[in-house]
Amino acid sequence: MLSLLRGSLSILGFLALWEIVARSGLVPTDYFPSPILVGETLVAEIGRGEIVSAFLATFQRALIGAAAASLLAIAMALLAARYTIVRRAFDPIAEFLRPLPPAALVPLAIFFLGLGWKLYGFILVFACFWPVYLNAAQALAATSRVQIETARSFGYGDWAILAHVRLPAALPTIFIGVRMAASIGLIAAIAAEMIAGRDGLGFYLMDAGLSLRVPETFAGLVAAMVAGLLINALVMFLRALTIGWHIQLTRMEAGA
């Protein structure tokens, strides 16, 4: 409670400082709108509806892309965990493709996939796949021997051990990857919209920025921030639902 109060104090202080600087005329107001003006613009834009549909389009893309990539990556990691040969064949290729900036794929992907949902699907899944796959593969391979041997001694087969022991044990680490994937999803969605889009927050921001509608640009930035907060909150909520035990356990260890 106290920390929440302190937090809002610090943010209010930041906004007040911004307001003062903007009014003082130290910076040209055309380039540096005051927070009050940004707030008013945001409200007006929400009223016009364009920013809302841009927000929804981007958020939906990021969410679907990150979710699809996560499921695909977990499935692939499970296969790699079950069959060593899959892991040996796939991992070096993963090492090679992972550092490839997804934005570099956009121009050429347009040729094959057009400007519609297929382009976003490909770019987002490519961008979000790696953090989840790498974390999942590493965590699935790192299950404690004792847990595996315990399960074997109670008659669990390889697949059953994967489902009942290795996957639940790996979930906390997998969520580190999913959390990264969610924020990367938003980045990739906005970047793709900026480069090739006709709608979404990325397009809105670029359009406002290039036509020097500065307060609108800042309003778009606030909307992007809200999208970031929201998608992270969503992952954390999902995490609390699935691995509440782990959150309690770390809290207990931190307290001890």
């Binding site: 938003l186 980045i187 990325g202 921001l205 640009t217 930035l221 998608i231």
Partner: peptide, 11 residues
């Protein structure tokens, strides 16, 4: 932190 980096491009 949650602001996606490309969003600051116009600014």
């Amino acid at each position: 932190r949650p602001i996606p980096p490309p969003a600051v491009a116009p600014i």
